[in-house]
Design a protein around this nucleic acid. Structure first.
Lengths: 333, 333
DNA sequence: CTGTTAGCGCCTTCAG
DNA sequence: CTGAAGGCGCTAACAG
């Protein structure tokens, strides 16, 4: 059951390897009708398939893209991955998805692996812990675009949400509904992950805008596993918040779990808005008001930007591209 | 910024390419301490990374595995993918994930692409629409394991849930809670997708076991988009069911949406059990009783079986490996 | 212990 | 219009 190669086809069709190669690459302008036909038949009969690895070696292009997400547990990540895959599939590219688990070391490993595999480019949700690597890649003009998280001074094309606006949308909604004691809880901030910082900033700005004093005790940032403790604290205050912005889907789920355990009622006891659209938002009772990210556009933009780099279309200065969130009004606020 | 190769390293270290190659492959038993050191330094200085594509061409092994899921929208798929990726990562393998979208043509495309890319093996959630292809792969001893869906006569190692048991667990629970009018709804069955068929069969067997007559009107199978209509029908009957088994997570979500729209109360108006564990099961009110698949074990088993094939460990007849579901008792029944 | 020599399967001039 | 020859970067005998 040996693998059949271009040589076998050539022999079978009584032509040379290069002729077959021409055929494969659709350069049959200067090829006789007859040979073309013969080659087609041979390929068919032998059930030949070109070896992409060999081709890649020669052409320095593997038609595969590496995608590294910081944390695949966020529904946002999987949504983006799906959209990216779709888009690349249209372009004949494959993607290799890697999950860095928020660990810079793992990310580094993956980046090096993917480089070694000669991927044509990468889309990364950066952990932020590998500046040197990012810079080296940038310097060597390796095609790369960042997603979701802004890495200061990285000079790398980045697609991100307008996070301040996301928080603002939520706060505006809360305020409009008459809430003033509004808390925000996000996952840990110690590694300066930009969306979280920005969402908190947006929260503060929005409160200020509405002339509501900022209560630092209403801002909780903690590891995913510690969210329920943070909530307990929040609700042990003399004046617990009446509204809460969950800065991502993981926080939202923790909040809902806490709410259930405490027998709180939404929105009477606590109004809730979550950033990130979640599948259960519609049928949860009450249905959940969310701030949705335009995942498809974000993915498409990232793909486009990457393809431009791959195709060497110089594009001036790399930028941060901010896409706009939208509020999906439901009943939790 | 040219790519630096093994040749550059050799030159830099004043040795031959093969010596460097030895070094890279950790065969330094017969290598002088000095050369080893020199090579290490050169690699460091030049920031050299081996080109895996070239290595793959030579070694006929790419250390990458293709994973094709029939439909990535099932949470089960993503859970399995995560687990598979984890496991392969331990083995130094990468995976390329493809989504066939339940379209055999797309599946075919992907299989051929992956073969062309010389992946070392594939794990497939088969659509069932490419028997000829499956057989050809099988015949050529290409390493492959099927997941989730049984393809009759395929002679391919398969990891699947004991689906009849899954349904039985649910029915037993319903019956124990005093329900007798029990419906089941699954996504479409026209392409004979085995888990769905088996779950229905398990449902029937279990009812029979409990000496409850089977009411065909209580068995609904329909496209994902049409589930709400099916439910409407179900509830327009003179005697609507009091309990409902959602055969997968997509159905479950549709059911919950319907329930909300109609203002039904779970479990008073309708008891519900869903097959597939879902993230919102715990905090939904009432929390949802589910039948959980042992995703991690299933993934690990699939990986193990595939690795055995890759390592040429002949294993006698291929089998269908059935893993056991477990009931997670909560409040919806 | 290290270097030489041949490829892996394909693509690409460049003759013919 | 077609074939011969060389090379992509790496590995694997086989000499030395």
């Amino acid at each position: 059951m040996k693998k059949i190669t271009i040589g076998d086809v050539a022999k079978h069709a009584n032509v040379s390897k290069s002729t077959v190669s021409q055929y494969l690459n659709k350069r049959y302008e200067y090829m006789s009708e007859r040979t073309r036909e013969r080659i087609a038949v041979s390929i068919e009969e032998l059930d030949y398939r070109p070896n992409i690895v060999a081709r890649s070696l020669k052409q320095k292009s593997t038609f595969t893209i590496g995608v590294i997400v910081a944390n695949i547990l966020h529904s946002f990540s999987t949504q983006i991955i799906r959209a990216i895959e779709n888009k690349f599939h249209e372009n004949g590219f494959h993607i290799i998805v890697c999950n860095a688990d928020d660990e810079p070391d793992k990310e580094k490993d993956y980046i090096e692996m993917l480089m070694a595999k000669q991927v044509d480019g990468m889309i990364i949700f950066p952990t932020g812990g590998n500046m040197d690597l990012y810079n080296r890649m940038k310097k060597s003009k390796f095609p790369i675009v960042f997603m979701d998280r802004i890495i200061a001074d990285s000079e790398i094309e980045t697609v991100a949400l307008d996070n301040e606006q996301a928080a603002k949308l939520a706060i505006d909604e809360f305020v409009e509904s008459g809430y003033r004691d509004i808390a925000i809880v996000t996952t840990s901030i110690i590694r300066n992950i930009s969306p979280r910082l920005e969402r908190i900033q947006g929260y503060k700005n929005a409160l200020e805008y509405h002339q509501i004093p900022i209560n630092p005790a209403y801002i909780k940032t903690t590891d995913a596993g510690m969210i329920s403790q943070a909530l307990e604290e929040l609700f042990s205050y003399e004046k617990p918040p009446e509204a809460l912005l969950a800065a991502n889907d993981i926080v939202l789920m923790a909040v809902l779990t806490y709410v259930k355990k405490q027998g709180l009622k939404i929105p009477e006891d606590l109004a809730v808005i979550g950033i990130d659209e979640v599948p259960f938002a519609v049928f949860y009772t009450p249905s959940l008001t969310t701030i949705s990210q335009p995942t498809i556009e974000m993915a498409n933009l990232a793909v486009t930007l990457l393809m431009q780099q791959i195709d060497q279309e110089e594009k001036g200065k790399p930028q941060v591209h901010r896409l706009q969130p939208t509020l999906i009004k439901r009943e939790s606020c």
